[in-house]
């Protein structure tokens, strides 16, 4: 460890989550602190510790919104979209950006584990934020042809409009359909199967990358009567 966390912090974190787990669904929502809302898992909470103790939140926002001082908007940054397990985030964080008007500091002492935890937390925040943003989108009706193109390029490897998704547009109305497309994580498919795990990972990545129009277009395509 680079020394970001005090020596006993890990013990405290484990204890906090053990208590939270005992309380299960009845547990009250964790109280926010100066670094935002505690993350839902110990792994993500480790990432939050790196994010906050490195003071990333002062410029990039506690939830990736409200970037200040000319900082990059991580919610929409293509670099974050392309990042996998910190492979792009890590080099930038370690080197900093000394050429910026208000330079981004460098963090050369962060360990590989801390970079991985930080990246996981940034992706988590981004998915949360993009979900909020895209579920509130009230754009036009979408272009079914553009949706078909997008679907074939990004969804067709796992899904088919006439197969597993047949009738989905009739089953879910409006916002519910949009929410299912954006985050189908409560699918009744058997948990832990490779297909489900991979699917959730893929949907997580897509959630970070969708343009608002992509979602509208895919919905228009799914709603379109079969040709």
């Amino acid at each position: 460890m680079s020394g970001l966390l005090p020596p006993r912090a890990g013990v405290v974190l484990v204890a906090v989550f053990a208590i939270a787990a005992l309380g299960n669904a009845q547990a009250p929502q964790a109280k926010a602190d100066a670094g935002g809302v505690p993350a839902p898992t110990p792994e993500l909470e480790r990432g939050r510790a790196v994010y906050v103790l490195s003071s990333c939140h002062f410029c990039h926002g506690v939830d990736l919104t409200g970037a200040q001082m000319g900082a990059t908007d991580l919610m929409h940054s293509p670099l974050i979209a392309a990042d996998q397990n910190g492979n792009f985030i890590g080099p930038v964080v370690r080197a900093g950006k000394p050429n910026l008007q208000t330079a981004m500091p460098s963090y050369p002492d962060l360990t590989s584990q801390e970079i991985a935890d930080l990246a996981a937390y940034v992706h988590y925040l981004r998915r949360q934020g993009r979900y909020r943003e895209l579920t509130m989108d009230v754009g036009d009706q979408g272009d079914a042809r553009a949706g078909e193109t997008y679907f074939n390029a990004n969804c067709a490897a796992c899904h088919s409009r006439k197969g597993d998704l047949a009738g989905v547009a009739g089953k879910y109305a409006g916002a519910a359909l949009r929410a299912r497309i954006l985050r189908p994580s409560d699918d009744p498919a058997p948990a832990g199967t490779d297909r489900t795990t991979l699917g959730r990972l893929q949907h997580g990545k897509l959630l970070e990358r969708y343009a608002a129009a992509d979602v509208r277009n895919v919905i228009a395509y799914l709603r379109e009567p079969s040709r």
Binding site: D33, A34, G35, V52, L53, S54, S55, C56, H57, F58
Partner: peptide, 9 residues
């Protein structure tokens, strides 16, 4: 004050 902390400013 600009270092990271979970405590208030």
């Amino acid at each position: 004050y600009e270092y990271g902390s979970f405590r208030s400013s």
